[in-house]
């Protein structure tokens, strides 16, 4: 699915989180929204997911207006910063949640749900943890379960909010590779938010550098390094 963001702005009370921002995301791309805290990157991601609504502007999915579409209708797989796993459910129940929440006539059978959940647990290379609770998992395992849960709904795109932020450096490197592989196998349009320029440059096809609610530059990692569009981009990506 390709996504177009047309002049999206967002105000919280009197505060401006996003100045009118425009961006187009090609189908199947892996995009990084890169910027310091307060740059509006998470707000933009939440607007794509339907968790926030813009004050003005439009969002288009595959060319059709999706600005007023509800969060449920959008079917965007979302991985939260601290994973937001359901703490009172096992890993299996967490991953199955989205399938079980479907309307009766769209819901797969019990056996089919079981098969799909197990396939996803294989995909994240944690086949044997279905009966555990989130509190019994390490940070890296939780992150991968959150990813499997988001993939279970057969999302139209994948959105990740600081997916590696709470992990130590070694695990972060491994999971970065894991996300790249999952993106390449599923071919999903994927947008992730990060404040780590190294992560953005290494992982993404296209990097969107943001600051103070504005897009500073959009480009391939190598282009941004070679030709930074502003002083901000130069200093931020040199860090």
């Amino acid at each position: 699915m390709f996504v177009e963001i047309e002049e999206i702005a967002k105000e919280f009370g009197t505060e401006r989180a996003l100045h009118p921002v425009s961006l187009s995301i090609p189908s199947g791309a892996l995009i990084a929204l890169l910027g310091p805290s307060g740059s509006g990157k998470t707000t933009l991601l939440r607007i794509l997911a339907g968790l926030e609504f813009p004050t003005s502007g439009r969002v288009l999915f595959d060319g059709t207006d999706a600005t007023g579409m509800s969060v449920q209708e959008r079917r965007a797989g979302f991985v939260f910063q601290h994973y937001a796993l359901f703490r009172h459910m096992t890993v299996f129940e967490n991953v199955a949640y989205g399938l079980r929440a479907r309307k009766r006539h769209e819901r797969p059978t019990r056996a089919e749900i079981g098969r799909r959940v197990n396939r996803l647990l294989d995909l994240i290379q944690l086949p044997d943890i279905g009966s555990r609770y989130p509190s019994q998992l390490s940070g890296g395992q939780r992150q991968r379960v959150a990813l499997a849960r988001a993939l279970a709904i057969e999302p139209r795109m994948l959105l990740l909010d600081e997916p590696f932020g709470a992990l130590d450096a070694k695990v972060r490197k491994e999971l970065r590779q894991g996300l790249r592989e999952i993106h390449d196998t599923t071919g999903l349009t994927t947008v992730f938010v990060t404040h780590d320029q190294e992560e953005a440059m290494e992982l993404a096809d296209l990097v969107v550098v943001m600051s103070m609610g504005r897009v500073e530059q959009v480009g391939k990692p190598a282009d941004i390094r070679a030709r930074p569009a502003s002083d901000f981009v130069r200093t931020f990506t040199a860090a």
Binding site: G50, H82, A150
Partner: peptide, 12 residues
């Protein structure tokens, strides 16, 4: 966050 996660997974 958990409620938001459930909403993105399609729950009413």
């Amino acid at each position: 966050a958990e409620e938001e996660a459930a909403l993105t997974l399609g729950a009413s």
